[in-house]
């Protein structure tokens, strides 16, 4: 197994880990976003609560939850490690930098990821931690009602919208970058991958951002 740790510890291996965990997290976000969008059905959260109940009790989903956290931790630790290692490779900084040769968000994945992490701490403490660990959400309170309660105050709404903005830019680069890293750069398919990545990043982030805003403005019945 030493060949595996050695290869995954190389510069290319660390990138492969970022790419694979990133694609896994992207697949999770699609499920999360689709299920949460059920709140927009205007049925008092009935369908959404059923879905939330299923996600909270199904043993396959609960097992995947552990895998999800492992994936998230690998993505975070590996990302931070790469960020600091990469920074150390240029001991003397340039006086002038022309930023036109690449997009600002592709150069700021570490910063965007850190913003996402800060958002995630608040997000998990609102919902996941209270529901699964602390049990501080009362028995009769549904996830729909909990969402309503959280987004009464404007502060979480602002933090969530900033979180979604970071997510959009993180994904706009991350989606296509993941394919490039695993070697899937083909002149025929890469433009499509980039296009799907941008659409995915913008749509998912907008749908997520719409939830706290809509709840706050009392648009969801």
């Amino acid at each position: 197994m030493s060949w595996l740790t050695k290869s995954l510890g190389s510069s290319l291996g660390k990138k492969l880990l970022m790419s694979l965990t990133g694609l896994f997290l992207i697949s999770f976000l699609l499920v999360h976003c689709t299920l949460n969008a059920l709140v927009f059905l205007q049925d008092g959260g009935e369908t959404f609560n059923k879905a939330a109940e299923f996600m909270a009790t199904n043993p396959v989903i609960r097992t995947m939850e552990i895998v999800l956290f492992l994936g998230l931790i690998v993505h975070m630790v590996d990302g931070l490690r790469l960020h600091f290692e990469n920074k150390s490779k240029r001991p003397v900084a340039y006086a002038v930098i022309n930023g036109k040769n690449s997009t600002w968000y592709s150069r700021s994945m570490g910063l965007l990821g850190t913003l996402l992490l800060l958002f995630l701490v608040m997000h998990l403490s609102h919902f996941w931690f209270n529901a699964r660990i602390a049990g501080t959400i009362p028995e009769q309170m549904t996830m729909f009602e909990k969402m309503k309660e959280v987004f009464v105050s404007p502060i979480p709404v602002i933090v969530y919208v900033i979180g979604c903005g970071s997510l959009a830019y993180h994904l706009m680069h991350g989606f296509q970058s993941a394919f490039q890293t695993i070697g899937w750069n083909h002149p025929k398919y890469m433009p499509t991958i980039k296009c799907i990545g941008n659409i995915y990043a913008i749509v998912v982030s907008l749908v997520f951002a719409a939830m706290p805003i809509a709840f706050h403005l009392n648009l969801i019945k």
Binding site: S10, S11, K15, L82, E85, K89, S102, S106, M109, T181
Partner: peptide, 16 residues
């Protein structure tokens, strides 16, 4: 890696 070059972030600045 041994020479101390960094990893790739796929920014595309090199290509540009």
């Amino acid at each position: 890696d041994e020479e101390g070059f960094g990893a790739c972030t796929n920014t595309g600045a090199c290509e540009a």
